[in-house]
């Protein structure tokens, strides 16, 4: 029994380290890319945005995954406990993406000149909306917001919509953003559809 608990602890420790490495990987790759001779700061814009979006989609996929797994799996329970932190890391990458954009633009008037471009205002709005659930991702905010906490977290749905439009416009195509969001959407769809089939079976 003691051995089993010990094994569980070491399993979790390894998983925690693996998750931290995985979440830090995009930053590592960006820093590696910065070593290239012809690298310019703007080259870090696509990977930082992609990391923010992918990690956000991953955090959002945990909910439906847990519903499908029924909460029995220890791995899924472990993921559920880390969902909040994963979401905050996604916001950190989004903030880094904005920081890189601001430094790369270098002048307020240049930013103002393009703020009306659909590829830009969608990004600003997505980040502004994402900041609310990120700021509310702690126990104190949860206690303070009470019934409003969940609606604030659900602002990630409009954030996803804005992110997809922002990504498609700036990377010139829908294929890339849709391929990245598809697994999360498939899990949501499966989590919605499965109870309907289960109900039909019990109706008979």
């Amino acid at each position: 029994m003691v051995n089993g608990v010990g094994q569980m602890r070491s399993w979790r420790r390894i998983a925690n380290v693996a998750l931290a490495v995985l979440l830090a990987l995009p930053l590592g790759l960006m820093l590696q890319g910065a070593q290239q001779e012809d690298w310019v700061l703007a080259d870090a814009l696509p990977p930082s945005g992609e990391a923010a979006a992918l990690i956000m989609f991953a955090a959002m996929a945990i909910g439906p995954l847990a519903r499908l797994a029924g909460g029995r799996s220890e791995a899924v329970r472990w993921l559920m406990r880390r969902r909040r932190n994963i979401g905050v890391v996604a916001f950190a990458y989004a903030a880094l993406h904005l920081g890189i954009y601001i430094v790369d633009m270098g002048a307020f008037d240049l930013m103002l000149a393009e703020i009306g471009a659909p590829g830009i205002w969608t990004g600003w709005l997505a980040l502004a909306l994402m900041a609310l659930p990120a700021a509310a991702s702690n126990d104190r905010a949860m206690r303070f917001l009470r019934g409003w906490w969940k609606p604030v977290q659900r602002l990630v749905y409009p954030v996803v919509a804005l992110t997809l439009v922002h990504w498609a416009i700036l990377m010139y195509g829908w294929r890339e953003p849709l391929v990245h969001v598809a697994p999360m959407l498939a899990l949501y769809a499966a989590a919605v559809i499965r109870p309907l089939f289960a109900r039909k079976r019990t109706d008979r």
Binding site: T122, R154, Y157, V165, I169
Partner: peptide
């Protein structure tokens, strides 16, 4: 805000983004 409301907001924002993006160079 219920889930359906946040989904409606998501759809509206996506629609607005797409409408504005219709003149952009996706090609």
């Amino acid at each position: 805000m219920k889930a359906s409301l946040s989904l409606r907001l998501a759809a509206a924002l996506m629609g607005a983004g797409l409408a504005c993006a219709s003149g952009t160079a996706l090609a």
